[in-house]
Amino acid sequence: MAEMLALAKDKLRAQGMADAAALAQRAVSGEVGNAELLAGKSKIPTWRPRSFLTPETPVGKPYQWEDIVYKLLQQHDASSQPDWTPDKVPALWAAVSPEESGTRADPIPAVRGMEYQYGRYYLDPEDSKIYLCKRTGEMDGGKVILQYLPHELIGQYFEAAQP
């Protein structure tokens, strides 16, 4: 009986690893939308200091950090940099946001290190206010990765939404 249980656990573990690899591959190729990626969060590995310079860690591969899913933007070696967590290094990581419409009525929850889109509305988790991503000289639809929350960049990248 113990052998059967061990075999079943091994089979489940192998299936879980295969499912995680398939999800990561689809994320890298762009076949997976944010909603599907977030729904499969339990299959996404947790970030830890390691080399992200390997063929197993291509740009676009998702990792979790503090319950947020991030995609790798640039390969790098963090094996000796434990403080290079995804939330701290926006040049290397982008937070995956839910696929809300980004309208005033359906704002996107903001997180540090996420990719913001000009012309969309964001809900700031620290002050619970809604902000429009807007910058002089930038067209709606353009994108920028910011390490800050909207209330910290009023007048630069955001304006408070009118009630």
Rank of each mutant, 00 (worst) to 15 (best):
S79C: 01
P58G: 05
L12R: 13
E31L: 15
A8F: 12
P62Q: 09
M139G: 08
R48S: 12
P107M: 03
S97K: 06
V32A: 11
V96T: 01
L53M: 13
L123G: 04
A22C: 08
F158S: 07
Y157G: 04
S29V: 06
S29E: 08
S128T: 08
D87H: 05
P55M: 02
G119M: 01
P98I: 02
S97C: 11
G119A: 04
L153Y: 03
Q75D: 01
Q64L: 13
L149D: 02
A94C: 02
E126V: 11
Q74T: 08
V96E: 01
K143F: 02
M139S: 13
N34Y: 07
K134L: 09
H76I: 04
A18T: 15
K143Y: 02
G137N: 04
T103P: 03
L149W: 00
P125E: 07
P86W: 00
Y157K: 08
W93G: 00
D10Y: 08
G16N: 15
R26V: 03
P82C: 02
A24G: 14
L132N: 04
E3P: 06
Y148E: 12
Q81W: 10
T54W: 06
N34E: 14
I68N: 07
A78S: 10
K61D: 07
Q25M: 09
G155F: 01
S51Y: 07
I154Y: 00
A78G: 11
D140G: 04
L123I: 05
I68S: 04
K43N: 14
V89M: 12
Y122Q: 09
E100C: 12
L132Q: 05
L72G: 00
V96N: 00
L72N: 00
T103A: 05
H76C: 12
G155L: 03
A95G: 04
E56G: 08
W84G: 00
F158M: 08
S51A: 10
A160N: 02
A35P: 11
L12V: 10
P86L: 00
I130S: 00
E159W: 00
Q156D: 12
R50P: 11
A39K: 15
L153H: 02
A94Q: 10
V89S: 07
L123V: 04
A91N: 08
L149G: 01
W84D: 06
G113A: 02
A39G: 14
G113E: 01
M17P: 03
M4K: 14
T57P: 06
G113W: 01
P98T: 05
A22E: 15
D106G: 02
P150G: 09
K61W: 05
L73R: 13
S79K: 01
W93F: 04
S79T: 08
K143T: 14
P82G: 01
I68M: 07
Y148F: 11
A91H: 07
R104D: 10
G141E: 06
I68T: 14
G102N: 01
A35N: 14
I145E: 02
W47L: 09
G33K: 12
A78F: 08
Q162C: 09
F52T: 06
K11V: 10
